[in-house]
């Protein structure tokens, strides 16, 4: 399998099928933790960690346990429990090593459990049937690469959006436009810009 497959997987999930702006998953932290670039970066790293590890673990769980035992119908419950466990570990890690980041992420950190972007990517990886197309082990590589690309895409829009929001705070906007309204307008313009990347791969 060539490097082009992995490159395509990263570019595709990062830009062309951006998880936030084109699939509309993970919009809650996108709007909630994008006031400051520092928080957005911390959130993106936490989501990246959980997304990549969750993709790896759920892929193995799906093909080596659920499919073998013929119990793929519990995949969603199993994936949610895996993600929830990983989030607990991430929370513990951040609490230990960056108290400032722990405070700035606040409630959004445990809420990564319910971040539909993570469950969405995990489910999309299984639905994409990489194991059939590339073989079981190569499929695992593509699935994890794709998840990493999606996480990079999430980080890209989070950081860009937070930088724009920080600058917007200084502009003399009409009262009715301040806060969420102007943020949603910015998000829609960003989504249109990302739509223009469709077809590059």
């Amino acid at each position: 399998m060539s490097v082009a497959v992995f490159f395509t997987a990263i570019i595709s999930s990062m830009l062309i099928n951006n998880i936030v702006l084109l699939r509309f998953l993970g919009v809650c932290p996108f709007l909630g933790v994008s006031r400051r670039t520092e928080s957005a970066l911390g959130m993106s790293l936490a989501v990246m960690f959980v997304m990549v590890i969750a993709s790896f673990v759920t892929y193995l769980l799906y093909y080596f346990v659920l499919a073998e035992l013929g119990i793929t119908f519990i995949s969603t419950i199993a994936f949610i429990l895996i993600i929830a466990s990983l989030v607990q570990l991430v929370e513990m890690f951040i609490k230990r090593f960056s108290k400032k980041l722990y405070k700035s992420l606040g409630i959004y950190l445990p809420l990564i459990t319910t971040n539909c972007a993570i469950l969405g990517i995990v489910e999309l990886n299984i639905a994409a049937n990489y194991a059939t197309d590339f073989g079981l082990w190569s499929g695992l590589g593509v699935a994890v690469t794709s998840a990493f690309g999606a996480a990079l895409g999430f980080a890209l829009v989070m950081i860009a959006f937070s930088a724009i929001r920080e600058r917007l705070d200084g502009y003399p906007l009409p009262e009715s436009w301040k806060g969420v309204p102007v943020s949603l307008v910015v998000a829609s313009i960003m989504a249109l810009a990302f739509l223009g990347l469709g077809g590059i791969v």
Partner: peptide
């Protein structure tokens, strides 16, 4: 098996 797997994950 489904019950066992869910139990282990819980």
């Amino acid at each position: 098996y489904a019950i066992l797997v869910v139990f282990l994950l819980v």
